[in-house]
Design a protein around this nucleic acid. Structure first.
Length: 654
RNA sequence: GCCCGCCUAGCUCAACUGGCAGAGCACCGAACUUGUAAUUCGGAGCGUCCCGGUUCGAGUCCGGGGGCGGGCUCCA
């Protein structure tokens, strides 16, 4: 606890209130630590920081008068974890600075699952996971020493001098930017043991609060996220209060790997990848069952909402892309080929093709909106380092649609798209996150077009009272968009659906319709994908279901297991009966034990296992075993077939 | 594309400081005819991602290329 200054004779006090409403009165310069001590010695020991009006502050700083105060302890949930993870980042930097003289430090924040720190190692020095042992060992020494985090607020000049003298150029740049962008005159420094860092804080009282930590991986990261600037070495780690919590966290990560769609894709025979075509999945028979079931759903939903299915080429004369603007803005992501003196490009998007359909005829306002949907195959040369199973591919099959409409029709059409999204996502029990992306730096089209387009999307979102995040500058080059995002097994966010407003493409292709006033007008184009792409969507649902696909998607819906060879004919008859009801069923006629057949079927995640022995053969039944749930008793094959067919037709989320 | 790591049988993984390339599962064959998560015995299968180098000798060391994993940038 910091010594209280008693210099003045003032008898002023600070008044704060505790979370339960109890008022607390303390001497004028009282700190968070004083408040905790005033409440009780146990809390004084456990206190890590205080929260006042939402802001987390050091325990050692004077309380702000008149505000509620909450003492943050190890039991305060994510707040507290963030605090010690930030502490751990400082300790990591402390250890690295000692072990690698000359290293430059940049930033080290807590993140969702842990923390990282970015370093610029001297030329010729690389760090890999093999070095984690000794870095962790050094970190443990600093934690065992329970070094206090001491804050000092110093003038900018002094901080600059300090970091310049240390050769910490990244820190110098950070301070200079703070001065330029925020006009700060002082900055805060935090010292723990031998290490002093530029840092906003807050921190726990000492390094000892870090109960358990682990360095996890090393990665490259551009300074300030800018690919033109130096690449730093980022060390990721995580920290918890207790070893048991860390162990549990690591265990969860381990389990998450079991539902990774890349692993399940192989185990369930859904798809495969080859070195010969990176980023392009090969779909195996089981995977095609899933694909086709999704296609059916997609087709029905489109038809029900007034979209008409079309199909357009994948290879176009490059002139098309010059007109559309892809040549200027998207060329680096495209594949080209020269044939008979003509340059052709594989389409990276379906819109220019659909524009050709629109242009095929003179259009009247009475025709609008015109809605085309296509399972559109596009190719994008995604940089090699970005490919990721089904979630990031080069061969992309979009569940694409384009609506041509009048400006007045935009809100209704955007809503139609969002409704479509809900219809699809609800079917899987998925809850996507909505994001509104506005004009990017690299764009075409006049500013007032962007103003109108962004306003229209915002209005659609507001009107339906949807929760959404704003992603400024994340829009497409031709227009703003609303995106639907999902998270994968290990917490990464992926964009699936999108609704994009486009005033540019109609302009560039000179699209028109004749209005009620008999004059020519320009339609607006709405680009829409709901699942995003079949590839990515299947990747997401495979992980979502951990490979245990619901009946309507399961590659094999039921497997009949004859107990002995003499039961095979009856098993085949039962299978035929299931086929007759439109079910995907097969027989396991191997001369293996029932236990073995059941085990294999469970591992294949087949929803229904149907055991058939003497008893069943005689009665015309099968013994039904539900995946994961066990024996459900005997049921006549006819009844079962109809029941399962009905269940599959419902397309229930699970 | 960039940073770090990895690449051995269909899959999961072994092979001490360079010294005869292996196991389990899967596969094939035989016996067993089985009642709700692995029957037994036997057999075959890789020359270590590719190219080049060092060495008496390279899965192991070096250089180049490819792919994959994690991350950055980018993106459905």
């Amino acid at each position: 606890m910091r010594a209280r200054r008693q210099g003045s004779n003032s008898i002023e006090v600070v008044k704060v209130t505790l979370p339960d409403g109890t008022p607390l009165e303390l001497a004028q310069d009282a700190t968070g630590a004083d408040a905790a001590a005033a409440i009780g010695p146990g809390l004084a020991r456990a206190a890590l920081a205080v929260r006042q009006n939402g802001e987390l502050r050091d325990l050692g700083r004077p309380l702000r008068d008149g505000e509620p105060v909450e003492i943050v302890t190890a039991r305060s949930g994510h707040d507290a974890l963030e605090l010690i993870r930030h502490d751990a980042a400082h300790v990591l930097a402390t250890a690295v600075l000692e072990l690698y003289p000359g290293v430059k430090i940049s930033i080290g924040p807590p993140i969702e699952q842990g923390f990282y720190y970015d370093f610029d190692f001297p030329d010729g020095t690389t760090v890999s996971e093999a070095d984690f042992g000794r870095i962790e060992e050094r970190m443990r020494e600093h934690i065992a020493a329970a070094e206090p985090f001491e804050r000092s607020d110093v003038p900018v000049r002094e901080a600059l001098e300090r970091f310049r003298a240390e050769g910490q150029t990244y820190k110098v740049e950070l301070i200079e930017d703070l001065v330029r962008d925020e006009g700060v005159e002082t900055v805060s420094l935090y010292r723990n043991g031998p290490f002093t860092d530029l840092c906003r804080g807050p921190h726990a009282p000492t390094t000892a609060s870090i109960g358990a930590f682990k360095l996890q991986s090393v990665a490259g990261a551009y300074w300030r996220g800018d690919a033109t600037r130096p690449m730093l070495t980022r060390i990721y780690g995580t920290a918890f209060f207790k070893q048991s919590e860390l162990d549990e966290h690591l265990h969860r990560l381990e389990q998450a790997r079991a539902r990774d769609h890349r692993r399940l894709g192989r185990e369930l025979g859904l798809f495969l990848f080859s070195d010969l075509s990176p980023g392009s999945p090969f779909w195996l028979p089981n995977g095609m069952v899933v694909w086709n079931a999704l296609t059916e759903l997609w087709r029905e939903e489109n038809a029900a909402r007034g979209y008409r299915e079309v199909k357009t080429p994948i290879l176009f004369d490059v002139e098309l892309f010059k007109t559309s603007g892809h040549w200027d803005v998207y060329r680096e992501h495209m594949y080209f080929t020269d044939v008979e003196g003509r340059t052709l490009g594989l389409k990276p998007m379906n819109c220019p093709g659909h524009v050709q359909l629109y242009k095929d005829d003179r259009r009247s306002y009475r025709d609008l909106p015109i809605r085309y949907s296509e399972q559109g195959l596009v190719h994008r040369h995604e940089p090699s380092g970005t490919l990721h199973g089904l979630l990031r591919v080069r061969h992309i099959t979009q569940d694409d649609a384009h609506t041509f409409c009048t400006e007045e029709q935009i809100p209704a059409e955007v809503n139609r798209c969002l409704d479509f999204g809900h219809a699809i996502y609800d079917r899987f029990g998925l809850e996507p996150r909505l994001e509104l992306s506005t004009r990017p730096d690299k764009r075409i089209g006049a500013e007032e077009m962007w103003d109108r387009a962004e306003a229209a999307l915002t209005a659609a979102l507001e009107q339906r009272g949807a929760e959404y995040q704003l992603a400024e500058g994340e829009g497409s080059f031709y227009g703003p968009k609303i995106d639907l995002h999902m998270t994968d097994t290990i917490g990464r966010s992926w964009q699936l659906g999108t609704v994009q407003l486009d005033y540019v493409m109609p302009e560039r292709f000179g699209l028109e319709y004749t209005g009620a006033d008999n004059a020519e007008h320009r339609p607006v184009m709405i680009h829409r994908a709901t699942m995003g792409s079949f590839e990515r969507f299947i990747g997401i649902i495979v992980e979502h279901y951990a490979g245990e696909l619901p009946l309507w998607l399961a590659p094999v819906q039921a497997i009949v297991l004859p107990i002995a060879d003499r039961h095979v004919p009856a098993a085949e008859a039962a299978t035929a009966r299931l086929h007759a009801s439109g079910l995907r069923a097969e027989v396991d006629a191997r001369t293996e034990s029932v236990g073995r057949k059941i085990r294999d079927a469970e591992l294949r995640k087949v929803p229904y296992m149907l055991v058939l022995g003497d008893r069943e053969a005689e009665e015309g039944t099968v013994s039904v075993r539900r995946h994961r749930e066990g024996d459900q008793g005997a049921e006549p094959v006819d009844v079962l077939a109809e029941r399962l067919a009905a269940e599959a037709a419902e397309r229930r989320p699970r």
